[in-house]
């Protein structure tokens, strides 16, 4: 199997963490994985895009020319990267911030991630809501596999961060 995922959003929307959780889950389950950030020169507010490849075979170029999955958080990111998704690919989009005009060929999961995160009390976990939606759709990893990695990444940080991220993940799963 090979899964090529493009993650894109505003800088600060947490796409880095979303991809890192998937990448680490892939790593501990013995898969090959490459995770490549492509920054703009802006530190905040620009479009942040990450190329994540998970495979059972050696990965050559970490740059994705044609994505199996596109996870996008905002309108500019969707506009910029919709062309990279392959014909029968999966599009997971934050429907709170993206208005979709016909993108008929692909499989679409609309997740009102910003709304859900706001309801949970922290807009910053909208990325994890998106991750939940992706998980339940592609079923590459279980929620527990992701939560294990979340624990490792949040080690040493405030305890309540784990709880709200767990809630966000579950809400994302239920949103589908």
């Amino acid at each position: 199997m090979t899964e090529k995922i493009i993650l894109a959003g505003f800088g600060g929307q947490g796409m880095m963490l979303l991809g890192k959780l998937l990448a680490q889950a892939a790593m501990v389950s013995g898969k090959f994985v490459t995770y490549f950030p492509s920054y703009g020169t802006e530190v905040r507010g620009g479009t942040a895009v990450y190329h994540l490849i998970i495979s059972s075979e050696e990965i050559f170029s970490p740059l994705i020319e044609e994505a199996d999955t596109l996870i996008v958080m905002n309108q500019p990111s969707y506009q910029k990267f919709k062309g990279i998704l392959k014909a029968d690919g999966l599009l997971v989009l934050n429907s709170s911030l993206i208005k979709l005009k016909n993108h008929s060929d692909v499989r679409i999961q609309k997740v009102p991630a910003t709304e859900i995160a706001n309801k949970l009390g922290n807009v910053l976990v909208s990325n994890i809501v998106m991750l939940g939606a992706y998980l339940i759709t592609k079923k590459l990893f279980s929620a527990n596999q992701i939560l294990d990695q979340l624990k490792i990444i949040l080690k040493g940080k405030r305890g309540d961060l784990f709880a709200i991220n767990k809630q966000a993940l579950e809400s994302g799963i239920q949103a589908i």
Binding site: A23, M27, V33, T34, Y35, F36, P37, P62, L63
Partner: peptide, 9 residues
């Protein structure tokens, strides 16, 4: 830049 910023196990 790619080898430097690329994350791999």
């Amino acid at each position: 830049a790619q080898i430097g910023q690329l994350m791999e196990p």
